[in-house]
Design a protein around this nucleic acid. Structure first.
Lengths: 156, 156
DNA sequence: TATTTTAGCGAAATATATTCGGTAAAAAGA
DNA sequence: TCTTTTTACCGAATATATTTCGCTAAAATA
């Protein structure tokens, strides 16, 4: 499927506000709602969207500390990696994780209530995994989603 | 504002699918649409949502490489940090950034088309900033949003 | 106990989503 | 170049959903 300027506009608008209604999109694109609806349906069916996520005001929910945790495994092998990823899915507090090439094998974006919860997360929950070699944490002062991409290559 | 189990359910459902309609939410919570609507309005007005973001299928859009870039600045001072953040907003390719405490000052999640674009991003775009001390990149094999938080502390 | 607040409901009014037949312009094929 | 096909678009009609509101009952507060 080939994309044009209007398609890109839909993608960008939803990146910034995934809850925009079809009508609101149509107004922005300056096309009829029915036309916009067709485009959105097409983009969705063609799998251009990976997910629609609400990101919450974590501080308001009692998660006063966010950290980025670098994890190095003893063995960076398929089986170890798979079971680690599986473990990540069971742990409470993980907002997002990155599986990386290089020195650091995993980068975890974690939200915790307070320093004690953080200590417990690292010493009790995470270190519980057999193949952990090294863990280092950095407090996140601030983080922001930009989605500032250039789509010139995709447009016909 | 105090949250109960139903509110948490709304937050969680929208974390996983920000485009759920009010009616769909109401069905999940097993309450009337009008009731659900009131709750959602209340949560929104009380600023429990930071953003609603569509995340795109970047590979399909020609962004074949995603990297995590560690940036260390020469001076970690308010003015330098501010202007760096400002610069990040102008750069094309940044999906998300983290401002950190510790050795690494910034962590950038970047999407590029190919190795050449990456080189250009780092050598031309990023290094252009006067106060860059050090840059290191790691390819992202995989990354995923989990939002797997425990809200026991918030519930009454 | 009396009073206020709150969460809930359903019905009505409003607005939106969705489908569909038709049109015109662009793309593809002869 | 002239057809034919495809595509993006529209507006009208219908189906759904959102939103408001008055009312009730239960919970919280005084």
């Amino acid at each position: 499927m080939r994309l044009d300027q209007k398609d890109i506009q839909i993608l960008k608008l939803l990146q910034n506000n995934a809850r925009l209604s079809n009508k609101e999109l149509a107004v922005e694109l300056d096309i009829a709602p029915s036309t916009c609806h067709e485009r959105l349906k097409k983009l969705t069916k063609s799998n251009f969207f990976k997910a629609f996520n609400a990101s919450l005001n974590l501080e308001k929910l009692g998660f006063n500390i966010e950290v980025l945790i670098r994890v190095r495994l003893k063995k960076h092998e398929r089986e170890v990696v798979n079971s680690f990823i599986q473990k990540l899915h069971t742990l409470k507090g993980i907002v997002r994780f990155y599986h990386l090439a290089g020195e650091t094998n995993f980068m975890l974006h974690v939200a915790v209530e307070n320093p004690n919860t953080l200590r417990s997360f690292i010493l009790d929950e995470l270190s519980d995994f057999k193949y952990i070699d090294n863990i280092e944490s950095s407090i996140i002062y601030h983080n922001k989603c930009l989605h500032n991409l250039s789509y010139t290559n995709v447009i016909e």
